[in-house]
Amino acid sequence: MTSRDDILGRVRARLNRNPENAAAGRAAIEATLAMRAQGPCPAIDSQKSALAGRQQAGTPPLLERLVEKSLAYSSTVDRVGTYAEAPAAVARYLAGLNLPLQAVIWPALARLDWAAAGLTVDTRGAEDHDLVGISGCFCAIAETGTLMLVSGPDTPASVSLLPETHIALVPASRIVAGMEEGFALARAELGQLPRAVNFISGPSRTGDIEQTIVLGAHGPYRVHLILLVQE
């Protein structure tokens, strides 16, 4: 007997499985999967816009909440209008930190005029020597100040992981309330889930040594959000 049959066989025996209740059980599973019931979702409000309840994507309370929670998670936040303004904002941020004006970027962002802002960019997955990675995001989760990134040929996961500095462009229209809304968007736009859906909330951290929080454990030391309020 294979281990699979052995394990499942013992579970079935313990649950008194028979053909009738198996059919009923499978029907219940399909119903659960079809229903996708949501648990209790907290209201999304912010200190600046105290509108209770879950909000439509892109509304000001969501944006303010995203900013508040991102800051609480040690990210930094800048606001510009459009994608076209993003390269200059990136250059300003890097110059402010005395970082080189050089980055690895998502292929999905290659259309922006990075050179005009004085930036040298490589369009590929990240490598160990890359100091700065620039990504977009699939959407952002206001509830927890979280970026939701999905992997793909034009959106490699390593760009938000290997470099010490991660900069993410976040269009305001892509700010949703919670993880539930993020998943709903993924189902609607992508069909099936891509290989990696990464939820990122601030720089990587550890508290393993004497519960002292240190930023930059294995991933980025810095996460910088550039909000595109007109996008």
Binding site: Y73, R124, G125, T146, S151, G152, P153, P156, S158, Q192, L193, P194, R195, A196, V197, N198, F199, I200, S201, G202, P203, S204, R205, G219
Partner: peptide
Amino acid sequence: NYVSVLTGVKRPDEP
């Protein structure tokens, strides 16, 4: 800080 939902293997054109 990180929650990853991982499904299947990489696509051939994925870096």
